[in-house]
C-alpha cells in the first residue's frame, strides 16, 4: 500500500507543479492597472489553487483505503487487550462518556468534563488518563514520546485513531452547556487571542480570517463553525509528508512551534481549552473520521 500511495503522491506533485505554472499568468498581468487596484490584485483568496483541488480529489479516492485503517486496527487490538502493570483492558475499564468500553460516537462528544478526573478532557487526554489510572502506565512514560515519527507510532495514537473511526459521519456535539466545558471554551478563546513571543503572534494571527494562506497552505478560520470544522476534519490523520499518523494534539503543538512559542505540555489544560474552543465552535457539523493530510 505504501508504494501505491507514494506513486499517487508523485503524480500529485507533478500536477501541483503544473498548477503552479498556470498560476503565474494572473500575477504578471496587472502591470497597466491604476495604483489602488493593482495593490488589491492578489488572486481571490477563497479560490482554491489547483494543487489543493487535486489533493482533495486524491483524498476522496483514497477514502476506501485510508492508511489510517492500519493504525485503527492496531488501536482496536490495544483497546481490547489486557495491558499495563494492572493487566486490564481499556474495553473493560475506560469510560469515554458513553459508558465503560463504549467507543461508538465517543470522539465527537469531546472535549468534555470528567468528574473522576476533575478536568475537561479532549479524547486523547481522556485515553491517556485511562491508561494511567486504569492500566497503571506512567504518565511521564507516555508523555516522553507522545507523537509518531517516521520510526515509531505510540500506542496512544493507535488508540485515538480507533476511537475516532467510530465517530465517522457523526455530528460534533461538545457539551457546551456544561459550565466547566463553557469555561474551558472561553479560556481557549482568550488563549487563541493572546499575542506574545518574538513575532507578536497569536493563534488568531493566522486563524481568524477567511481564505488566508501561509505560502500555499490554507488556514482554517477557527472563529466560525465553517472554518473550525476544517481545523477538526481529518484529525487524527495520516500525513503523507513523512508517512506518519498524527493526532489533533500534535497539530496544536506544532502550531505553537510555528507561533515561536515554547511548547505546550502534553495532555494539558492548555490544549484541552483550545480544542474545546475549536471543536465546540464546529458543533452540529459532521465529522468525517480519520483522514489523510498532505
Amino acid at each position: 500500500m505504501k508504494r501505491l500511495i507514494a506513486g499517487m503522491l508523485g503524480g500529485l506533485l507533478v500536477m501541483g507543479g503544473a498548477a503552479a505554472q498556470t498560476d503565474k499568468k494572473p500575477a504578471s498581468k496587472p502591470a497597466a492597472k491604476p495604483a489602488a487596484q493593482a495593490v488589491q490584485a492578489a488572486p481571490a483568496a477563497e479560490v482554491k489553487d489547483a494543487a489543493t483541488l487535486e489533493f482533495e480529489k486524491f483524498r476522496a479516492e483514497m477514502e476506501d483505503s485510508n492508511p489510517a485503517e492500519l493504525f485503527e486496527m492496531k488501536g482496536e487490538e490495544q483497546w481490547k487487550a489486557k495491558r499495563g502493570p494492572k493487566n486490564v483492558s481499556l474495553a473493560e475499564s475506560c469510560d469515554l462518556g458513553k459508558g465503560v468500553g463504549q467507543v461508538a460516537g465517543a470522539y465527537v462528544i469531546h472535549p468534555r468534563y470528567y468528574a473522576d478526573a476533575n478536568a475537561v478532557m479532549d479524547l486523547e487526554r481522556r485515553v491517556v488518563w485511562c491508561m494511567v489510572e486504569k492500566q497503571g502506565f506512567k504518565f511521564d512514560d507516555i508523555a516522553k514520546k507522545p507523537f509518531a515519527d517516521s520510526n515509531s507510532t505510540p500506542d496512544i495514537t493507535n488508540l485515538v485513531t480507533y476511537v475516532a473511526t467510530h465517530s465517522k459521519n457523526m455530528k460534533i456535539a461538545v457539551p457546551l452547556d456544561d459550565p466547566k466545558v463553557r469555561d474551558a471554551f472561553e479560556t481557549g478563546k482568550a488563549m487563541a487571542a493572546y499575542r506574545a513571543g518574538p513575532y507578536d503572534f497569536s493563534c488568531n494571527t493566522c486563524h481568524s480570517g477567511d481564505g488566508k494562506r501561509i505560502r500555499m497552505q490554507q488556514l482554517p478560520n477557527i472563529s466560525t463553525p465553517e472554518g473550525a470544522i476544517k481545523g477538526v476534519q481529518g484529525w487524527p490523520g495520516y500525513r503523507m509528508t513523512g508517512g506518519v499518523m498524527l493526532t489533533h494534539q500534535w497539530r496544536m503543538t506544532d502550531c505553537f512551534r510555528q507561533q515561536r512559542f515554547p511548547q505546550p505540555k502534553y495532555a494539558s489544560d492548555a490544549i484541552a481549552n483550545l480544542l474545546t474552543y475549536m471543536i465546540g465552535t464546529a458543533n452540529g457539523l459532521e465529522y468525517k473520521g480519520p483522514g489523510i493530510k498532505r
Binding site: 479560556t187 493572546y194 505553537f256 505546550p264 489544560d269 492548555a270 490544549i271
Partner: peptide, 11 residues
C-alpha cells in the same frame, strides 16, 4: 485565566 494556563502548561 488564559495567561495563567500559558504559565502553568508550557515548557
Amino acid at each position: 485565566k488564559a495567561i495563567e494556563v500559558f504559565k502553568k502548561d508550557f515548557q
